[in-house]
Structure formats: C-alpha cells, structure tokens
Design a protein around this nucleic acid. Structure first.
Length: 294
DNA sequence: TTCCAGGGGTAGA
DNA sequence: TCTACCCATGGA
C-alpha cells in the first residue's frame, strides 16, 4: 500500500532526515540506494508495519511517498495512524519561515539551509525519544547506537514477515522486562533504572508523557516538566525541547563545548556562559543556529 | 591502569 | 544555587 503526504517547499527530505543522528538509531534505517527512510512501527491497533518513506520533487511541492508493508491490509484508521506518525516524525507541522527569514542575515547558514533543512528527525512517541535521549548521556555515540539496538532487538514487537526487524518497545514491554534483562542484556549501565522507572510511571498512569507532544506550555514550564523525569537533566531536557519544536535552549554537552571552542575560541576551553553568549542573539532559534553552525 | 565519552542524582554547604 | 562525589559501560 502506498500513502502520500505533500510538503510545502523549501523542504529537503533526505538532508532533513540525515541531519539528525536519530536516523542511525533502531528502528530507523537510511536506505542510501533508495534514498528512503525505513522504519518499523507499532500502530495503535498493535499491528507492526514496515515503512519505506521517500520523496519526489515536483514544481510546487515535495510529495512524500510512504510504502507500507504489513501482514494484513491496513484499515482506514491504521492508515491515518501511519500518516500521523510520519507527519510527526518529520516535523511537518512546524513553521520554519521565521527562522529561514533570520538566516538571510547569515550567509553561511543561508547557503547551508536554503534547500529546506531544519526539520530534525524524531520518533513517533515521546517515550521513545526520552529513552533515546537518556542513552546519549555520558557515553559515546557508538555505545548509544548499541544500547538502542539492544532495547529494540530484545523487547520490541517483531515485524511478522521478517522477525529480525522490530518496532521500538512500548512502555508496557519495557516495564515488563525484569532486572536481569536490563543488567545482563540491555547493558544500559546506570541509565537502566531511569528507563525502567519511566516505563513503569507511564504504565501505571502516574505520568502522561505523550500529552507533552501537543502541550502549549511556555518553554520554561515544559522544561520543568521534562526535568521531573529521573535521568533527564539540563542537557536531556533541552534536547527534548528541540524534539518538541522549541529551539530557544542549547543542549550543552561535550560536542557543543568542542565545536564552540574550535569555531570561536581558538580551541581553548570554554565556559557555559561563553557558550550561551555565543548564541544568545538567536533567541528562540539558538538550538538550530548551533546545530547547523559548521 | 586511568581517563572519559553528546550527564545526572544526591548530599551538604 | 553551587560543588563534590558517585553512578555502569567500554574504548583509547
């Protein structure tokens, strides 16, 4: 089955997907030959679908082609589910016109982004993105890839036609996994208990994480909410604000320190205040200005 | 062996 | 609000 979505220009699908490291984390996969994003997802009905998302440029718009495979034909509701998931993952709901306007004053950024970049890839659920963000803390990117792969391959629902492909596990599936699996198989280190606790809070109804996806709280309030999650500190909260389309805070980590030091301070060590000052004038677009600043 | 990687929680001031 | 210390894991 083929579903379609149209996106206003400028929009560079391939660049936008690949601009975020998330594309390297299971259950995402970038198919270079087809220039397509492959994704395994568990729909609301529990059905597991395999998606191949690619783009076609026409004169006026970019048309996204979503090829969906599943063991039985998708119902109308399931088709809507797929469209909504893809719409969310690719941030098609966000308006970047104000940011594109701002970068006119910055030729390097303008040149880099004029094709329509900035819509950084995210996951269908906020649960998946919080877990992935926690696995990026105090570790290397290679280890993050491994942690997420083990979470998906161990706990995720398999795609029936090819059980080697799995969806990201639901909070229920994560909460049901015992401690031995966390320590012996998933090897998340001290992050394990944070992921377990989050999954349990969602399952018991103690925390309604997904409602934050469409929250109209001001960024600072939203940030407070995110920091209530154990394992989410300043860096993770600001990363998640970006995921939620709020770009006014920098997620300062060793990568940011290194890039700001190299670009603006001749390789000398930088303080948090120096980093903040460097991007202060970008106001509500600081995160994107940093992200594409190289 | 030690250090540290896309940090965060906690206790104590 | 700030600081010191601890937290698994694995590669350099």
């Amino acid at each position: 089955m083929i579903l379609e979505l149209s996106v206003a220009k400028p929009y560079d699908f391939a660049q936008s997907v690949c601009d975020h490291g998330w594309v390297q984390l299971a259950p995402c996969y970038w198919d270079k030959e087809r220039q397509a994003l492959r994704h395994v997802q568990c729909l609301g009905t529990g059905k597991v679908a395999l998606l191949h998302i690619s783009a076609e440029n026409t004169a006026d718009v970019v048309t996204l082609r979503i090829e969906v495979e599943a063991d039985t034909p998708l119902t109308t509701a399931e088709q809507d589910d797929v469209r909504q998931n893809v719409h969310w993952m690719l941030k098609l709901d966000e308006d970047f016109s104000a940011f594109y306007e701002r970068i006119h004053q910055h030729p390097p950024l303008q040149e880099r982004m004029s094709s329509g970049r900035g819509r950084l890839l995210r996951s269908p659920t906020l649960f998946e993105d919080v877990v992935k963000t926690i696995t990026t803390t105090n570790t290397t990117w290679r280890q993050t890839i491994g942690m997420v792969e083990r979470i998906v391959n161990t706990l995720g629902e398999p795609y029936p036609a090819n059980p080697e492909l799995r969806a990201f596990p639901t909070p229920q599936q994560v909460a049901a996994a015992d401690d031995a699996v966390f320590t012996g198989v998933l090897k998340l280190g001290y992050r394990g208990p944070y992921v377990q606790q989050l999954a349990r809070e969602i399952v018991t109804g103690e925390r309604d994480l997904e409602s934050l996806k469409h929250s109209d709280l001001p960024p600072q309030e939203l940030r407070k909410e995110l920091k209530q999650i154990k394992g989410v500190g300043d860096y993770a909260a600001n990363t998640l604000l970006m995921i939620l389309g709020r770009y006014g805070e920098l997620a300062v980590d060793s990568e940011v320190r290194s890039l700001v030091s190299r670009l603006y301070f001749n390789g000398e060590a930088v303080t948090e205040a120096q980093i903040q000052d460097t991007y202060r004038h970008w106001d509500e677009w600081k995160y994107l200005a940093y992200w594409f600043d190289a």
